[in-house]
Design a protein around this nucleic acid. Structure first.
Lengths: 109, 109
DNA sequence: ACCGGTAGATAGTGACACTGAATAGCGGCG
DNA sequence: CGCCGCTATTCAGTGTCACTATCTACCGGT
């Protein structure tokens, strides 16, 4: 893989993180580990933190500082109503794109 | 839709165009019209031409100038071996991403 | 005292799609 | 004839997003 994934993630990584947060609240480091587990081995730590700050500024998540037993305090992110709405929109957009791509792959051109 | 699609297209639009060219040779204006037909109404003309120049410079396509009955000569693009290899890679990357996304949507988190 | 693991922040870079406008050839209509 | 509309391509400037690389900071164990 490599650069191709990087470009394809633009616009989708945000949705991926919001989808994770829809399942349960989480903090940055946790999300990064989870992504690595799921095969996204190439996603840099810094990328996730930058993304989290972005969605926080847009008001898609609520933030709470929670002291950690190990290391500095965690910033725990929780999806709010605006974030859920944006996530719904994301899935609609994804479905649209996904369907066209599958048609194309089948040679329906 | 709107901006969300735009960001999601990064990295995939290139694959879409190559997939079209895998079916048959085509020129820019034709590809744009085809995309609009298929629901990609928001893709700007300029975007496609810029993309075509890019994939030409990378050597994924062969180019032939064909005089047109109407308007200036067409630049007809044909997918070559390198392009086909890149397209195969694209589908692999797409499958990877697509599978994780579907898992996420099903709440497999 | 140091190191490894946990946790987060940030400045600079590159790639890609969009906007908006310009150029150019051709046919038809008044 | 002159202008409009359709076909067809090009290009300069913009914004967004993920990456790289680096830095700060807290903790436990050796």
């Amino acid at each position: 893989m490599g650069k191709q994934v990087t470009e394809m993630l633009k616009g989708t990584l945000e949705g991926i993180v919001l989808a994770i947060l829809a399942g349960r609240p989480a903090y940055g480091y946790e999300i990064t580990s989870w992504l690595r587990d799921k095969g996204f081995t190439e996603i840099a730590e810094g990328t996730i933190y930058a993304l989290l700050i972005r969605i926080e500024q847009r008001g898609y998540v609520d933030v709470e500082k929670v002291p950690s037993e190990k290391g500095p305090p965690r910033k725990v992110y929780t999806l709010n109503a605006d974030g859920q709405a944006y996530l719904d929109e994301f899935w609609t957009t994804w479905s649209f794109l996904s369907e066209r791509l599958e048609q194309l792959r089948k040679g329906d051109s």
